[in-house]
């Protein structure tokens, strides 16, 4: 176990490399997940507010096209 941790005297270089990998990969995963949560919350709030507005044009022009397909 001692030899494992000391990495033949190169512990600083080897463990820094694996530490940097863990930091970058976990950091990007956490940032991506929190970004997704944030935008999905905003979208849910906006879509909850939308149907009240959408009902009026629907009576005059029933297009039947989901908004997702017309989005750029």
């Amino acid at each position: 176990m001692d030899g494992f941790l000391s990495m033949g005297g190169y512990a600083a270089y080897v463990w820094s490399s694996y530490g940097a990998a863990a930091l970058i990969l976990v950091g990007l995963l956490v940032l991506s997940l929190s970004g997704l949560r944030r935008v999905e919350r905003t979208l849910a709030t906006l879509e909850a507010a939308k149907p009240r507005r959408k009902r009026e044009p629907k009576a005059t022009a029933p297009t039947g096209t989901p908004a997702a397909e017309t989005a750029p």
Binding site: L33, L36, T42, L43, K50, A67, P72
Partner: peptide, 25 residues
């Protein structure tokens, strides 16, 4: 790892576009 995380990020990107469209509307 890249495939999994990029899917999460694409989902966020598509949702962000949708938010933008709704706000413009």
């Amino acid at each position: 790892y890249f495939v999994a995380v990029v899917i999460l990020r694409i989902r966020a990107g598509l949702a962000a576009r949708r938010v933008q469209t709704l706000r413009l509307g």
